[in-house]
Structures are given as structure tokens and as C-alpha cells.
Amino acid sequence: MSAAAVPVPSRLLGDVSVGDELPELAVDVTATTVVLGALASRDWRPQHHDHHFATERNGLADIFLNTPNQAAWFERFITDWTGPFGRPGRMTFRMRTSVFPGDRMVFGATVTGVATDATGCGWVDLDVALRVGDRVATTCTARVALPVDPSDNPWRRHGDRWDPGGAAAAS
């Protein structure tokens, strides 16, 4: 196997500083976005695919992006930036208003923390926002592990060496 076939980390912990901003990801949401994400995540409750149910029974403006779909979009946004060596540890998000077909959602994020924990795992903390126009639809704090050097890979960590909840004191 050629050396070129072996993937190398595209972003190391040392490449990241507090205050860095991630490249934005913009997505024009359609009914297809909402329905495919809901079906693929087995979230088949009708408010995510049935316009009449959403508007007439639930009193909402339209069908809206479901929770696992939002989680997946946050993950895609974050791991597009980290590359495949980035390993999500924890994601906490608050859906303040819903995301509907016709909305243009824009994901943006700022690095709020860069640290190595007691096990030697490198962590980046992110403040993420999903905006629709001037409205912040969802806020998210994410904790993602990055390699500390080219030979490191957070995905190799298991058991006591993987602490996604941050119980081990960060240095």
C-alpha cells in the first residue's frame, strides 16, 4: 500500500487558537431537507413530514427540522472543519425557534477553548450557531477531540483514556 493511501490528520490541536472562526456552511432548507432527514433518522412523527398535521394540529408554520437531523447537521459542519481525525465528544444544543422549508440556515462557530486533558487528549470547545437570517434558531456548544501531533488519533482512545464529558480536569 502506498504511503499516500494512509490518511494523515488535516488539523492538529496546535493549529487551533481561541477566537478562531470556522468556515460557514450555508444550506437552503427545502421540504426535501426536512423530510429526508426525518425519515433517515427514523423520526417519523408527522410534524416532520406532514404539512397539514404541523399547521392544523400543532399550530406551527410548517413541518420543521427534527432533532437528530439538526444534530447530524452540526456534526457535519464541525467534522468538515476537523477532518476525519476529529472526534466529537459532546454536543449540547438549544433549539430556540424551528427551522422550516424556505429558510436558509447558516452554521458558524467560534473556538472558545483549546486544552489537553489529564489523559493527554486534545480538546477544542466550540460555540456554534445555526442562524436563519438575523434569527439564531439553534445555539450549540460542542467539544471535539483533535490529534495533538501527527501520530495521534483521538479515535484510538477507549475506556479511561476517553473522557468526552470532561470529568477529568482540563489543563
Partner: peptide, 16 residues
């Protein structure tokens, strides 16, 4: 209280 919307979610990933 028949309407339902999710508001908060925190996921922690312990293993792949």
C-alpha cells in the same frame, strides 16, 4: 397539551 417541540439536546459519545 397536544403540541410538541424539542428544545434542548445534549449528546455524549462514549464509544464509536
Amino acid at each position: 397539551f397536544t403540541g410538541v417541540v424539542a428544545t434542548d439536546c445534549r449528546q455524549t459519545y462514549h464509544r464509536e
